[in-house]
Simulated assay, not measured.
Amino acid sequence: MDAFLLLSGRVAGIGGLLLCITAAVLRLAGNYYLGTFQLATVLQGGMAATVVGCFLLLLSLTTPGKASRSLRSRE
């Protein structure tokens, strides 16, 4: 489960970052639309995906997993 949360958090974060970069570059180039979507909508989607990625990574850090089991075995 930890590996799945870690992978999905990274994928969501990188996808969100790519959406934000795409929206910013296209807007600076003078475009207002990407297909049928406004670039502000694409930017908001990118920010939302980045936040979801952050929450998934935080969840993978705070769930009891291998790290807490290895600490218990040392005691």
Rank of each mutant, 00 (worst) to 15 (best):
F4Q: 06
F4N: 03
F4M: 13
L5R: 02
L6Q: 12
L6S: 10
S8K: 00
G9F: 02
R10Y: 03
V11F: 02
V11P: 00
G13D: 04
G13R: 04
G13T: 12
I14E: 13
G15Q: 08
G16T: 10
G16A: 13
L17C: 10
L18S: 15
L18G: 04
L18Y: 04
L19W: 01
I21A: 13
T22E: 11
T22A: 12
T22M: 13
A23R: 03
A23C: 08
A24P: 03
V25Y: 03
L26P: 01
R27F: 10
L28M: 06
A29V: 08
A29G: 12
A29F: 09
A29W: 07
Y32L: 13
Y33M: 15
Y33H: 10
L34N: 06
F37Y: 15
Q38I: 10
Q38L: 07
A40K: 12
T41W: 04
T41H: 12
Q44L: 13
G45F: 08
G46S: 05
M47A: 09
M47S: 10
T50S: 07
V51Y: 02
V51L: 04
V52L: 12
C54M: 08
C54W: 06
L56Q: 03
L56E: 01
L56T: 00
L57D: 02
L58D: 09
L58H: 04
L58N: 11
L58W: 07
L59E: 02
L61R: 09
T62V: 08
T62I: 08
T63H: 00
P64H: 14
G65E: 01
K66W: 08
K66D: 06
K66T: 01
S68Y: 08
S70D: 11
L71Y: 07
R72N: 08
R72K: 07
R72C: 09
S73Y: 08
S73L: 14
R74G: 06
E75G: 11
E75D: 13
